[in-house]
Simulated scan of single mutants.
Amino acid sequence: MDYTEDYQLQIEKIREALSCDIIALALVQPAENLHVLKWQYISGNISERIKKVVLQSGKGIAGGVFKNGKPLLVADVNEFAAKDNLFNYPILKLENLKSVGATPLWHSGRVVGVLLGGFREPHLMTPKRLQMLISMSQSGIGTLDGKELMWN
């Protein structure tokens, strides 16, 4: 089975279901002693440059969500980051995003990626849409099982 097609098809379905301008999937890349992520699957992008961006754990939207293992809602990018600080958030700058939600992607109890949904207008990413994004990610994407490790 070609999981590349599966990932791309699934994010396109998520984009349609949420009516997002963009859906992007960043996955952990092999790197010596570092956790780095790359936006590998994107639907609705206006720039191919985003696929070249390498994200460090803890840096940017995806890096922060990956490191913390918690979803993030940014209803208005202008309230989240100053215009002169947007270089720290390449997907916001390159894709001209004004409202985003992101959630960690889990596999076998570990965060292995980040799923981001965004809009090019502010306040369109709502708590309800973010919850839908989270629910869709928990049902599994591609080979990822969506299962967070639970401690009893």
Rank of each mutant, 00 (worst) to 15 (best):
V111K: 03
K51Q: 09
L72K: 03
N96I: 04
R15G: 09
K147N: 13
P122F: 13
S108D: 12
L97S: 11
V114C: 08
L149M: 11
M1C: 02
Q131G: 01
S139C: 13
T4Q: 10
W106C: 08
T143S: 08
V74I: 15
K13V: 03
E16P: 00
Q138H: 06
R49N: 15
L144A: 09
E12C: 07
V54Q: 13
L9C: 02
A75M: 08
F119P: 09
Q56A: 03
I22T: 10
G113I: 02
P71I: 10
T143K: 15
V53Y: 08
R49E: 15
A62W: 02
T143D: 15
T4R: 12
V114M: 02
M136F: 04
G142N: 04
R110D: 05
P90I: 05
S139M: 09
G63I: 00
E148A: 14
T143L: 05
G63T: 07
N152T: 04
L115R: 07
I91C: 02
L18P: 08
A82K: 14
V77G: 05
L144S: 02
P71E: 12
E5A: 14
Y7V: 00
M150K: 14
Y41F: 15
L149P: 05
V65F: 08
I22R: 01
E95Q: 15
L27M: 09
K67P: 00
I50L: 14
Q10V: 03
Q131S: 11
K13G: 04
V111Y: 03
A26C: 13
